[in-house]
Simulated scan of single mutants.
Amino acid sequence: MDSNRKSSMFDGLILALQLLTTIPIRKEVPWTKQTASISVALYPFIGLIVGSITMGISLLFVEWLSLPTAVSSLFLLLCIVSLTGGLHLDGWMDVSDGFFSRQEKDRKLEIMKDSRVGAFAVLSLFFLLAGKYIFIFQVLEITEQYWFYFFIIPFFSRWMLGSSLLIGNPARKEGMAYSVQQSVIPRTKFSFLIWGPLILLCVYIVLPDFFIAAIILKVISIIILIVSFSFFNKQFGGITGDTLGTLVEGGEGILWLVAWLLLFYDIV
């Protein structure tokens, strides 16, 4: 790999970290088609980084500090939110305001662009965070292998984010999501065909006991992606940056629900 290719890969990674996390990186990265494409291709890898951090924190709270489950669950939820700086939650709230306004598509998009927060946004945020807290609490209570879910769920949520960005129809020809879509080169889409089988292969080799759980979470992620495409197209005419944030937050909430159900009914 020549030096220019290495530099582009590094710049793409830095750009993805700056866009999707609050990890403090001061380096300025040039916005080019190559760096933008590499950045999107690495979204699932960013999920693995976030997952590794949350997994480590979960082990710290539960195993080493022996905190009560209720306290560990709260701190872990705060850590998950802090790692993204509330970026995706902002999208969740904007989409909630737009959807519950029950207006026409164009009017919903205008409401989503409004910086003011409505009552529906606050209520939906409360139920989202409350749901995540409950499911995280239950997973911590049921299994000693909770760390796996803290590791793998952020991967699948960022995989859904990148996939939606690559193949979704833009609702409007402006904004961050549209700008990134216009910059992405075609072969980036191929990378997302590799990420899924690659992570499943790694789990099968390194953590075979979790292979079935990983497959189920992968299948659920695909279903979430398909359903969300239909929903966003019907309600807003396509995807926006806000719908991408909604997909990450809502998708993670559903995956935590699925993880709890798998453990509660002793499926895995």
Rank of each mutant, 00 (worst) to 15 (best):
I239T: 06
T243V: 07
R158M: 07
S191A: 15
F137S: 02
G91A: 06
K33A: 11
I136H: 12
E249P: 05
G131Y: 13
L67I: 10
F156R: 08
D209W: 05
I46T: 11
V122P: 07
E174S: 15
D242H: 06
I38H: 00
L19Y: 14
I254E: 04
V180M: 12
L244H: 12
M176E: 14
T143F: 04
S101K: 02
Y149W: 04
T188K: 05
E174L: 09
W31T: 09
L65P: 05
T84C: 13
L67N: 08
F127A: 03
D94Y: 08
I136N: 02
Y265V: 03
G12K: 04
D94G: 03
I226L: 11
R5E: 15
L89Y: 08
A177L: 12
R187N: 12
F210W: 07
L17V: 03
S163D: 06
L261Q: 10
S221A: 14
I53N: 00
I199P: 01
W195C: 09
W147M: 04
E63R: 14
W64P: 02
F45P: 01
G98E: 00
D11K: 10
R5A: 10
S37K: 05
T69A: 07
A70F: 15
L20Y: 02
I111M: 12
F236H: 00
P44R: 09
S37P: 01
D209S: 12
M160D: 02
I25V: 13
V180Q: 05
V206G: 03
S157R: 04
P154N: 03
R158A: 06
D242S: 07
G51N: 06
V40S: 14
R187I: 15
T240S: 13
V184N: 12
W159G: 02
F232L: 10
F148A: 01
L20R: 15
F45H: 03
I222D: 03
S191M: 13
L161P: 00
